[in-house]
Amino acid sequence: MSTRTTAQLEGVTFRALITLVFAFLLLPVLIVILTSFTPQNFPAIPQEGLSLKWYQELLADQRLLSALTVSLIVSTVSAILSAIIGTIAAIGFVRGEFPYKEQISTVMLLPMIISPVITGIALVRYFSTIQLPSGFPALILGHTVLSLPYVFLLVRSELLTYDRDLERASRVLGADPVTTFRHVTGPIISPAILAGAFIAFVVSFGEFTATQFLISPGTSTVPVVIYTMLRTGLTPTINALSVVLIVVMLVLALASRKLSSA
């Protein structure tokens, strides 16, 4: 066999392998979406026409709608909180000078390193100790901590590339520090902050493992409901709910990516 055909064969094999890896990565999500449109009573690939019946089912189920509401509230509030706290911390770590700065900043990333099960039991015990009510307060605070590292990393990298001459110019042009932040620094770093908030929302919206400890009877979130339903049996309602989750998360994540690359 000539070297040329060997190379061609290698190329074809490699492409085939890559296609398989992409399939492995993406098919599970695609099958969830596809089978949500089945007219049958179990998640099958629809062969005779699509049906929206499981989405209608979703709209009729008070428990699922309530979970969706809870998820939206918790994720929105915690995203805003972690955007604010993450931004403040990022500014402090980028602009501040103190010993062992780099090492200490690792602490800010701990919530994404420690297993969420441990975070979950630690938080639920702690919240009961400080008498923070379970349900919304616990969920929101917990999700804020869990999504904080993402905002921190995003805003920090934005600030590291920010040209501080812009602030100097603003001051010399007659603006005080607060005005400078409102009109110059704020608007310039706010896409990164917003991108961070969106990612925080996505992280919060999909969080299950720590969340299962923090919910109270009236405040189940969407991932918790999906998990519970999975344990009791496969119905296409799970698919419909999953697709809602996917759509919300993807829209926000894409928006975030647009903002942070702009």
């Binding site: 706290i85 993450g86 931004t87 403040i88 911390a89 990022a90 500014i91 402090g92 770590f93 602009r95 501040g96 000078e97 103190f98 700065k101 200490i104 900043s105 602490v107 800010m108 701990l110 919530p111 901590v145 904080l148 921190f152 602030e167 001051r171 520090p177 607060v178 005005t179 400078t180 932040f181 409102r182 620094t185 704020g186």
Partner: peptide, 22 residues
């Protein structure tokens, strides 16, 4: 945040705030 950016509130206090929360 504006005050912090311009150094009136020491920046390390902002870092401390984030660390305190975590």
């Amino acid at each position: 945040i504006g005050e912090g950016l311009e150094g009136r509130i020491a920046n390390r206090h902002l870092a401390l705030f984030g660390l305190g929360f975590v």
